[in-house]
Design a protein around this nucleic acid. Structure first.
Length: 296
DNA sequence: GGAATAACCTGGATGC
DNA sequence: TGCATCCAGGTTATTC
């Protein structure tokens, strides 16, 4: 499932191919890929045709591509979205929803294919607004401008402008389970079910611990582990369980081999050997070690 | 206003 | 073999 490391791998792969490129062709094969777009498919295609892309930016799990027009293409991969670089005449992908043809001054003509099996992902054209802190909006962003659809998303733990003190204060104000808060993109972005479970396991914190019950020291330790997990996953190209996540060249990541908690229910904890458990948690699953991560 | 829940969606896995 | 059901989960609208 695309979380911060997977989305960053995609952004980094697209940046050199898109920065400075002109969009020469747009084909919307499935309107459901434009659920966040305010207009219809025809307006999406018309506005993008001839547009120049200035770069590729990311905050949390959201991607955007600023345009010379002052607007931006916003993308979210949802649960199964892929952005693939292909030859312009490459055959249609199985779940292809949108295809852009771009012409780059150095790389020539390429196809950017947005494919999405479960159609939770989307593309949209959006306005850019000033960031609340007047700092560059995220990774790959050079201007303090962010799409309106992303403006409510908090900075992610790998962002230079990430403010741990503000997150600590937020945690202290709520009795919600720490895992629920980690998944709240308005508090801290980029973390999904996989990396929440991995970070909590690494920090030895039970996922249902009330956020306000965590000491400053525990929160600091948790976010040190969050960063470590995300950095390691990024270095290994992200987590791929099946064909749902691949980079822009269609290659899988290797972090699934480094997981300690997620998807390992019934297997021995890598620290103490106790069988890991899986419990239902807000329409999701939580995986943890009942011995290392005791509920307090 | 904050928190919890349902709905959206597809395909693989499982059970009968 | 074929059909029905369950499950995975990010975001958001709705409900409490």
């Amino acid at each position: 499932m695309p979380e911060l490391p997977e989305v960053e791998v995609v952004r980094a792969g697209l940046a050199p191919a898109l920065t400075g490129a002109t969009i020469t062709g747009v084909s919307v094969l499935d309107d459901r890929a434009l659920t966040r777009h305010l207009g219809d498919a025809a307006s999406f295609e018309a506005e993008l045709r001839g547009a120049t892309v200035l770069g590729a930016a990311r905050r949390g799990k959201f991607l955007w591509f600023p345009l010379a027009s002052g607007r931006a293409v916003v993308g979210h991969l949802g649960m199964s979205g892929q952005m693939l670089l292909r030859e312009p005449d490459a055959r249609q992908e199985r779940h292809e929803r949108v295809r852009l043809i771009v012409d780059h001054p150095q790389h020539g003509e390429l196809a950017v294919v947005f494919a999405d099996q479960r159609t939770f992902g989307s593309l949209a054209i959006d306005e850019l607004v000033a960031t609340a802190d007047a700092l560059p909006a995220g990774w790959g962003a050079h201007e303090p401008l962010i799409p309106t659809q992303v403006s409510h998303i908090a900075r992610d733990p790998m962002d230079e402008a990430f403010a741990l003190a503000a997150v600590r204060a937020c945690l202290a104000r709520t009795d919600s389970a720490i895992k629920r808060v980690l998944l709240d993109q308005g508090v801290v972005s980029g973390i999904g079910n996989i990396y929440a479970d991995e970070s909590l396991w690494a920090a030895r914190i039970h996922p249902e611990t009330p956020a306000s019950a965590l000491s400053t020291r525990a929160v600091n330790r948790l976010f040190a582990e969050v960063r470590a997990v995300l950095e390691k996953a990024l270095a290994e190209g992200g987590t791929s369980f099946d064909a749902q996540y691949v980079n822009v060249n269609g290659q899988a990541g290797y972090f699934a081999h480094s997981l300690h908690a997620y998807g390992r229910d019934g297997k021995p904890c890598d620290r103490c050997g106790t069988s890991l458990v899986r419990v239902s948690f807000t329409n999701r699953s939580s995986h943890f070690c009942p011995r290392c991560q005791r509920k307090r």
